[in-house]
Design a protein around this nucleic acid. Structure first.
Lengths: 231, 231
DNA sequence: CCTACCGATCGGTAGG
DNA sequence: CCTACCGATCGGTAGG
């Protein structure tokens, strides 16, 4: 090997041909405040597939194209990164839920009818499945399954977003409860409905949809068929 | 401090009064092949509360009253400990399921009747809730939520036990499906039922039962009320 | 955001 | 099952 021995932590930057010193970043790589976003996406993906404790900040840095120390320029510590992933995920989920409800309401309005509670539930369920299993869906599973690694002081913000998200379900399940379509104790049954949906993260494989597997629409249909009684 | 400086990893054995050399184990502590069982229980508890990657083998050793190197006398490595926790948990769950079914069958026989599919489902659901949330219930949650940390070679044995466990559900849900009591696609609906139950690990607090919270019987009742349609 | 580094902790082992 | 230890890796930081 003709070059001087590379330092332990920079094995390849020096391999760029004929470049002297550190290579200049191209326009694609620079220009960002979205380096932070890159970190969030990389962290969400790794936290989902390997767990929080099973992922090193070095893994995350590498996945975002950074060196090992750089995540700490954007986040105070590893737990703050986790909290940011969860907040980002809940904010997106909440925004998508509101958009989905508004779109469905508007659509019903043009048809000159009001949405039934059943139709409202379908909108919520379908959106939840998309948030859990659709494209870019690493954030919410991390929130669901890595909660215990959040520091106490960081839980409140995420909890508030979660409460907002769940609040939209209450009037809908309440109406269904009163008509007898949804049975059992209201809060227990709501937890069980969420469980049925959230558990899909453990077994649903989006890649199999093309080969005859269930689509997210199929899952939503099945959810309503399974949970809602005839009235 | 009058004593010689303790080695870094043996801070307290020397504190036993007047004992020369290493203290003799008492009969309670010795006599065991159940040191292995102690390790399993400690590991199950810590893996459940902190996750596999978030638990060190030193934590486990300490919880079982051993030194840091000793778990590796009983288990080849950390993953083997995880696999053993899962196998032990599934074996117990399977045994309890079979016992519960036999007891219910025997009871029906003395009443001179056969169990309805609905009654059979209740037995399975109630047992599952006990396995998930009852006393000594750390093992199965670990299996459910730490699966990704199992090495490929160790998955088969646990999978086989899991398949046996789930096999008992198939004829029951099938009968309910045929009568129209359980709706939707059979395998999707079964997954959703499992999800509703397994998710309870995330929110159910056994300690609150005494203060007006739901009991495991309440949860079982609610599950049947929620999932089974009138026929 | 990188370089260079630190102290702590980790899984695991040899030898008894 | 303990003692004593190893190399690797970890989260995090100072200084630029």
């Amino acid at each position: 090997m003709p070059m001087s021995a590379p330092s332990l932590e920079s094995p390849d930057h020096a391999t760029a041909p004929r470049a002297r010193g550190r290579p200049r970043k191209t326009a694609d790589e620079r220009d960002d405040g979205n380096r932070r976003q890159d970190l969030l996406r990389a962290a969400a993906h790794l936290f989902r597939s390997q767990g929080f404790a099973g992922t090193s900040t070095r893994d995350i840095a590498a996945a975002a194209g950074m060196r090992s120390g750089s995540p700490f320029y954007h986040f105070e510590n590893k737990e703050a990164l986790l909290a940011a992933v969860m907040c980002e995920g809940m904010q997106r989920a909440l925004a998508r839920q509101q958009t989905a409800i508004q779109a469905a309401d508007a659509n019903a309005l043009t048809r000159g009818v009001a949405m039934t509670p059943r139709e409202r539930l379908r909108v919520l369920v379908r959106n939840q499945l998309d948030v859990l299993l659709g494209p870019d869906s690493d954030f919410i599973p991390v929130m669901l399954y890595e909660w215990r690694h959040l520091r106490e002081s960081q839980r409140e913000e995420v909890s508030r977003l979660k409460a907002d998200y769940e609040a939209a379900w209450v009037p809908v399940t309440q109406a269904l409860q009163q008509s007898g379509a949804l049975r059992g104790d209201p809060s227990l049954s709501r937890l069980m409905l969420f469980g049925a949906l959230n558990w899909s993260v453990q077994w649903y494989d989006p890649a199999r949809t093309a080969q005859g597997g269930a689509s997210l629409d199929d899952l939503a249909d099945n959810t309503l068929t399974l949970f809602l009684h005839d009235t």
